[in-house]
Amino acid sequence: MAVVAAVPRVEAQAAPRNLGDQVLRLVLRAAALTLVLLVLAMVVSMVRASWPAMRAFGWRFLATSTWDPVAEQFGAIPFVYGTLLSSLLALLIAVPLGIGAAIYLAELAPAWIRPPIAFLVELVAAVPSVIYGLWGIFVLAPLLRVWVQPALGKTLGFLPLFQGPPYGVGMLAAGIILAIMVVPYITAVSREVLLAVPTSQREAALALGATRWETTRIAVLRYGRSGLVGAILLGLGRALGETMAVTMVIGNRPEVAVSLFAPGYTMASVVANEFAEATSDLYLAALIEIGLLLFVVTVIVNALARLLVWSVGGPVKAVRE
């Protein structure tokens, strides 16, 4: 800086630029830097805040399943298990529906019906999580308890997945609510991916005498498959971190149960439920470590998803969540 100040005239001639330009440049760069620093601060502050738990438990934190705030024993397994199982269940339901709906919107539907349905799908994504939770408690859970779970128990009850008393709330309810919530993301991103498939591919198939569906199958879906995997991963990222609706219907019990009827707990819900009440420093640190874990996992899943989606049509305009 001092050097530049010492030869102001030479500098001005080398780059004829006025003060306003330099100020604006600095301001804009500062704004971008703020974003970078924010993410950095996020990592640093969470690592620091969870340090007591990391030091106390080390890798055992990820390998034990006792969650006892009174005895100050903390293991994350029930939450990791609950998060993975509920997300998996959600994807099982959401992937066929989401990709099917995307195929309809991008390939098979009559042209006039596409914009209104696409808009409705956007609205599904816009409903706040807490409202899904409310609906889950008062509509979905009773529905499951009275009708669905008894029926499943009777027909498929020989499977351990469908055994136990029907509470309504529990892993199954969480999976269904999550599916409803992530399916609009999968639909929207898949649709963008399919629309990014070049027309020449469709024409090649149509000219061979393929029907609309055959064209979709041999030309469009195959061309866009890596982008579709990306769309699914984006949905997974959402499901892993979704908090309120899941907290309201999963039952919140830190146990590892095989049955989908049993209550469970997820990483996000344990933080939501217990954070404000965490009495000791170690308890708080353990909860923050769970948050950090969630952060790391979702960042990896999302980064992977973006790369895959971009591989089809260039940086596809992301759905604005």
Partner: peptide, 10 residues
């Protein structure tokens, strides 16, 4: 067609 359009996944 104008531009060759083989199916890239096949």
């Amino acid at each position: 067609f104008q531009k060759p359009n083989p199916f890239p996944t096949m």
